[in-house]
Design a protein around this nucleic acid. Structure first.
Lengths: 204, 204, 204, 204
DNA sequence: TATGAATGAGGCTTCATTCAT
DNA sequence: GATGAATGAAGCCTCATTCAT
């Protein structure tokens, strides 16, 4: 349990620091000071610095997935679920401005990594889209989300828009209005209309 | 002219390396080897490594703006211009997968910088959206793009989607189909419909 | 204690190297090799190379002061004390030919330094004269050293002569004779005579 | 003549910079900027940076010698000549606080140098003492300077005291009084008395 | 298990020197 | 002869990693 405790504290410290800096600008000294552990302790729980930071997104993505999955499992109508999904996603990205850089570099480098490591990373990243995909899948089943673009693709659109929002509009004064713009735009792009129905039929 | 030459070659070398690695993983040795210059030459044109990499986006964004502006100034109908804009944006992001990380970190750190430096960075980044904004503005003027979301906001949506596409779907086998999805999604989200017209009227 | 050990070894190594070269001609690599430590260790104990070399005189001057103070506290007659002081001073300068350059450059640059640093340097340098001053003060009290020039001024004369001697006459064949010249010269210059007594009376 | 001009300007610039910094802290860029020449010009007149700075004392010492020799050749009584020598020496050292470091390092390194270079350096440094030695020699001939210490040794004493004075008492408020102390001390140490006459006889 | 002093490979930067103009 | 842009060797410093305690 103590073991878990230190490990968790290290991951939390790393995640917190990622809010302000990129991984390569964070020193292990900073991490262990924030986590109140010794420097050697890192190497009891992680192979190296890289490994520690690799596992930060893993934990985060899992948390995000859980939050979205909870929404998906709820009994609210689809529109409410989508709203909740937006809020969850936006909060996630606003709180972790640079986390996605780590994820992106993992993607960049996954080709150099050993096979099982790659699988682990892909699995963890998949969780990000998976939660959103489930909700959008429900919407598609209810004929509310367009069927001519796969839900997992729409999920990525949604995530990328959320990330961009966190970067450009979150600290804005007009955040609420901007959020409305965003939802409206996505709804118009992703919802089923007569037009999209024609498309679906054609591609079927 | 030779001076410009070396400077350009260094920027080009740095840009090329940014396609594969992040700035902190690129050594000056790599840059100067790629640029076929001596290491000291860097310091004739840039204050330090940081400064060199700061100026890479500046040059790139300008190039992107020029390409998009050329489209905007063309005489094709709006639909063709938007298509061309997509192609330009996608090519830009596919060729410069990690460039945006540099831009993002500039945003992150611009608060620490001296005022004129910050202004320079913001100006250069503004160019990215500016080209797209012009085209979408023409669409809005032609009543083809929804008027209830400002074109400069839609421009950011478009850019973030393009960036995501470069990362997730570019290397895909089904790139063509994915590109069709993307355009269709954006069109649905951004084009004027009866529904958006109602919105515009309300917000007016 | 180990910490002190490394720090001491680094200072000793730097001091030893200063016997042969000036600070700017000594590389950190040489110092750490001589001290049998790693390069990084320097930065655990000193801010940078400058700081390491700044602290060398501090330690040396303290040692010199201790040696001279021991003489001053002894029960020998003044003449014997002065003899011992000469031997101590000459040994000091012969062993540390270039150390004084460091001290001089500290004086040169102390104006640029922060106030407490400057105070520390001045305090440490003061020790050099302080030991000699005490002995000469005793001589003055015993009416053997002229009273019309303050002992702390005579102390500086003595030190500068010792330094010059280390540079010009130490390696000489006729070192013994030269040493006799030096002592005789200083004695004639510093000792009380009828003539100096007149001076003192006049200036009183 | 143009050639001489540039060479002179470079030496003057180097000498001026030596008033504030040590050779190793002065860059060639600074020198050529101060001398208003190009960087390559240095290598037309000097073998390298070392050679340039080696020649600075050479020129300075020669100037000092000339000044002192002029005094020696004058018709004033010895006491006035010695006074003039003090003034010349003090002015020299006060104006060139760090020049002597260069000379000292030349001595330090002369052992590594080629034979003719060493001879040149020694010759140039000899000039420093030579001027003073001549004057003191005249004093000895006139039985005013003690004969039991060779004039060339006393010359070095005098020079070392002058150097120390420039460093410790020149900027002082009580400079005039300090100067009086210094002259009085040296006179007492160097002048012939009954006592020194006994010594001379014994050593003869 | 936990620590943090010690390490040294590797990176950035400086600056004396060269050489094409 | 005069120049200064270009060079790269050499040095300082950082920081991930180790290991004795």
């Amino acid at each position: 349990m103590k073991r878990t405790d230190k490990r968790t504290r290290l991951l939390a410290a790393a995640e917190a620091l990622l809010a302000r800096k990129r991984m390569h600008e964070i020193t292990l000294d900073e991490v262990v000071k924030a986590a109140h552990t010794g420097k050697g302790t890192v190497y009891l729980h992680f192979k190296d610095k890289e490994d520690l930071f690799q596992q930060v997104p893993e934990a985060c993505c899992e948390k995000l997935f859980c939050a979205l999955d909870a929404v998906a499992k709820g009994r609210q109508p689809f529109a409410a679920k989508l709203d909740a999904a937006w809020d969850t996603l936006l909060a996630f990205h606003e709180r972790r401005r640079t986390l996605f850089s780590v994820i992106e570099s993992q993607q960049e480098y996954s080709s150099h990594l050993k096979c099982d490591m790659r699988r682990r990373i892909n699995a963890s990243q998949g969780r990000i889209w998976e939660g959103v995909t489930r909700i959008l899948g429900q919407g598609a089943a209810a004929r509310m989300v367009r069927a001519d673009i796969p839900p997992e693709v729409l999920a990525r659109y949604m995530n990328s828009l959320a990330r961009m929002f966190a970067r450009h509009f979150a600290a804005h004064r007009g955040r609420a209005e901007q959020k409305a713009f965003l939802k409206r735009f996505f709804a118009a792009g992703a919802f089923e209309t007569n037009h999209t129905r024609l498309h679906s039929r054609r591609t079927e």
